[in-house]
C-alpha cells in the first residue's frame, strides 16, 4: 500500500511527521525518531522574543552588578562563549541535519521584522529543508483591527518567503474571522503549506492564590474535530499543502485528517505517550485500514471528504448549527 505523500515539496514515505516539541530537542532523540520511521522532523520554534528577553534578563542580572564594588569586578565568570542569539538553535539544526536521513523542518517565531527575515535566512543557511513560521501572537491591542493583524502576518510571510529558497509553511491559530480568505492571502504571499492549528498555553486560575497559571496539557482527540472542519474547508479551495497538528492520536484520527485534506499529520502527544515507535504502528494501522477498505493509496483518500467532495458539505458550515437549533424540541 502506497502511503507516500508530499509536504512542502518534500517527498515523504508516509504522512506521519514529528511536530515541534521536546521530541526533537536533542540529536539523540531525533535519531531515535528517524530510526523509528518518522517521515520528517519539525524542530521546536526559535523564539526571537524569548532570546531577546533572556538576553535582557541575563544582561541585567550579570552586568547590573559589574564594576560596582571595590572587591569584585564581576560576580559571574566572563563567558564570552555564552551566546544569546540563534546560534545554539542553528547549531542544533545543523547537528540534526547531519545525524538523520529524514527531512528536517525548522520553526520560527519572530518578534521583529528584521528578526523574521534574518533568522529565517540563517535557518536556511544552516540546512533546514523547510521552514514553519509560527505566527503565534495574542491580539491584545484595542487599536489594532483584525485586518491589520492579518496584513502584518501576510507581510511577514511575503518577506520571509521572498528571502528564502526553501519552502515556507505557516502555522496558524484557528482564531481568524475568515480563515479561507486569510489562507488564500498567505498562499499568495508565498506560503507553500499551512499547519492547522497551533495549540496555546492557556491561563487557568488558582483560586486560593488569586493567580494565573499557564500550562499546556497533552492534546486530546476531541481537539481534532475543529481541525477536521478547517482542513475540509481549506482543502480544495486554497492551493496549499495542509498539515494537521493537534489531536491525532490514532490511525482513525489520521485517516480522517487525510480525508479532510491533510498532506501530513504532525504527531506530538501521541509520540510523547506512545514513544517514537508509535510511528510504525500508526503506519501499519493506516495501511491495513486502506487495504481493508479497498483504497489504492493514501493519495486516493486525501481530500475525499473535504468541502468540495464531501457528500454533505453543509455539515461543515454554519448552517449546521442553525438547523440543529431549529430541530431542537423541548418535548
Amino acid at each position: 500500500m502506497d502511503l507516500s505523500t508530499s509536504y512542502l515539496g518534500l517527498a515523504l514515505p508516509h504522512p506521519f511527521v514529528a511536530g515541534a516539541s521536546p521530541l526533537s530537542d536533542t540529536v539523540e532523540r531525533c535519531q531515535h525518531l528517524a530510526a523509528a520511521g518518522i517521515a520528517a522532523i519539525v524542530l521546536r520554534s526559535l523564539f526571537e522574543e524569548q532570546i531577546a528577553q533572556e538576553a535582557l534578563a541575563h544582561h541585567q542580572a550579570v552586568f547590573g552588578h559589574t564594576e560596582a564594588h571595590g572587591e569584585a569586578r564581576t560576580y559571574l565568570p566572563a563567558a564570552d562563549d555564552s551566546v544569546f542569539g540563534p546560534d545554539q538553535y542553528l547549531a542544533h539544526l545543523r547537528a540534526v541535519k547531519r545525524a538523520v536521513p529524514v527531512p528536517v523542518i525548522a520553526s520560527l517565531n519572530g518578534h521583529t521584522e528584521s528578526g523574521w527575515i534574518d533568522y529565517g535566512k540563517r535557518i536556511e543557511d544552516a540546512g533546514a529543508d523547510a521552514l514553519e513560521l509560527n505566527l503565534y501572537s495574542v491580539a491584545t491591542d484595542t487599536g489594532e483591527s483584525g485586518a491589520e493583524v492579518e496584513d502584518r502576518a501576510v507581510m511577514i510571510v511575503r518577506q520571509v518567503a521572498r528571502s528564502l529558497r526553501i519552502p515556507v509553511a505557516v502555522k496558524l491559530s484557528p482564531f481568524y474571522t475568515s480563515l479561507p480568505h486569510f489562507a488564500l492571502r498567505l498562499r499568495e504571499a508565498g506560503a507553500t503549506g499551512l499547519v492547522l492549528f497551533n495549540r496555546f498555553f492557556e491561563p487557568d486560575l488558582d483560586l486560593e492564590a488569586l493567580e494565573l497559571h499557564t500550562h499546556m496539557d497533552l492534546s486530546h482527540r476531541s481537539e481534532l474535530l475543529l481541525r477536521l472542519r478547517w482542513l475540509a474547508l481549506l482543502s480544495g479551495q486554497v492551493d496549499v499543502e495542509l498539515a494537521v497538528s493537534g489531536g491525532v492520536h490514532t490511525a482513525t484520527d489520521a485517516i480522517k485528517a487525510v480525508m479532510c485534506g491533510a498532506h501530513c499529520v504532525q504527531l506530538v502527544s501521541a509520540l510523547l505517550k506512545g514513544g517514537a515507535e508509535r510511528t510504525s504502528t500508526l503506519c501499519a494501522e493506516v495501511r491495513r485500514w486502506l487495504q481493508d477498505h479497498g483504497y489504492e493509496s493514501l493519495r486516493q483518500m486525501r481530500g475525499s471528504m473535504d468541502h468540495s467532495r464531501s457528500p454533505d458539505p453543509k455539515a461543515l458550515e454554519r448552517a449546521n448549527y442553525m438547523r440543529a437549533l431549529q430541530t431542537y424540541r423541548v418535548d
Binding site: A52, E54, A55, L56, H58, H59, D81, V83, F84, G85
Partner: peptide
C-alpha cells in the same frame, strides 16, 4: 561587548 549577548542589547 554585547554582540554575543544578543542583538536586542
Amino acid at each position: 561587548s554585547y554582540d554575543k549577548k544578543g542583538d536586542e542589547i
